[in-house]
């Protein structure tokens, strides 16, 4: 009973994912759902950092790029197993995050935003210029991901893989938020001084959450690279970072399921608007503006408050 209550949204999500293939007419729709799932997991990691810990990152796509290019370069040029390459990418991204986190988190507000922005841009520049390994601005192909002789290729296989990863991520994030670690994060978001007084090691928690979200980002970068089978420096560029932050904000900061809604909405909108013939950017911008003006806290928290009458933590 308590599991049912605690995880009712998660169970609904699982049911939806299970039934979705019955109504998806073709590969194109599978593709959109897969992209939604990839974005949702990425945004979830970023939301832990931005929404829960209250630290901005405008360079998150840099970590996505590190994962993607690790999965592209290591198997192609050095013959590594894709899974090993994926792990290496995640390790590199986490290590970079851990090293830069301490100096970066001495900064606050705009300065923190600038520092993370720089980090992302530098990553993108390195990828663009190391053409011998990365193929430069034209990008490079990525080998297929194979697990014990079973190759994950095609939309339908990827769908199930990502459905499982998505459910696991949301379950894990949910538990993380309700753990002492999650409570400490929310405390330092509320007031750093107060949480420090209460015995929270502010710096350690900030670094930990930054590393964790970089780890998530790198893994999803690898998944994206294998899924699409081709990677270009766009994946690491500034606009991708902004796209991710927008998903966090639109869905709702500090809302686990807000991440999901934000990712679904912003992945589907450009597809739905593509029939507007050159006006899609304008319509897209207008929708974002109205969301921010009338629901500044994001879709899920605003709607939860209006219809639920209560604001459930983490839902």
């Amino acid at each position: 009973m308590s599991i049912l209550r605690r995880h009712h949204v998660l169970i609904i999500l699982a049911a939806v994912l299970l039934l979705l293939p019955l109504v998806l007419p073709n590969n194109y729709y599978y593709d959109i759902v897969i992209r939604m799932a990839i974005n949702a997991i990425l945004v979830l990691g970023l939301n832990l950092l931005i929404g829960f810990a209250g630290q901005i990152s405008l360079g998150h796509a840099g970590f996505v790029g590190i994962g993607a290019y690790a999965s592209a370069i290591l198997p192609t040029h050095f013959g590594w197993h894709p899974l090993l390459a994926m792990a290496a990418g995640a390790t590199i991204a986490s290590a970079i995050a851990a090293i830069v986190a301490r100096p970066i988190f001495r900064l606050k507000g705009h300065y923190l935003a600038m520092a993370t922005l720089g980090l992302g841009i530098i990553t993108a520049i390195v990828i663009k210029n190391e053409a011998a390994y990365t193929g430069g601005p034209d990008g490079m192909p990525v080998v297929a991901l194979a697990l014990m002789g079973f190759e994950i290729s095609g939309e339908k296989k990827w769908y199930w893989v990502l459905a499982v990863v998505l459910l696991f991520s949301f379950w894990a994030a949910r538990n993380l938020i309700d753990s002492p670690f999650g409570r400490a994060l929310r405390a330092l978001h509320g007031s750093e001084v107060a949480s420090q007084v209460m015995g929270v090691d502010v710096v350690r928690y900030k670094v930990a959450i930054f590393v964790l979200s970089a780890f998530f980002a790198s893994l999803m970068g690898s998944v994206t690279a294998h899924y699409i089978g081709f990677v270009t420096p766009n994946i690491a560029d500034f606009f991708h970072s902004i796209e991710l932050v927008t998903m966090v904000v639109i869905g709702g900061m500090a809302s686990i399921y807000g991440s999901l809604i934000g990712a679904i909405l912003l992945t589907a909108l450009p597809q739905a608007l593509s029939t507007f013939e050159g006006w899609e950017t304008v319509v897209f911008g207008a929708i974002l503006m109205f969301c921010m003006i009338f629901m500044p806290r994001g879709l899920v928290p605003t709607l939860a408050q209006r219809f639920g009458g209560r604001e459930s933590e983490g839902d």
């Binding site: 194109y28 990008g139 699409i228 597809q271």
Partner: peptide, 21 residues
């Protein structure tokens, strides 16, 4: 026609749309 905004990953998605949908 679709606009990939110079992003290869979007082009990949739109190609699926052209072919399958």
């Amino acid at each position: 026609h679709y606009d990939d905004a110079g992003d290869a990953s979007k082009a990949n998605g739109f190609a699926k749309r052209l072919i399958d949908d």
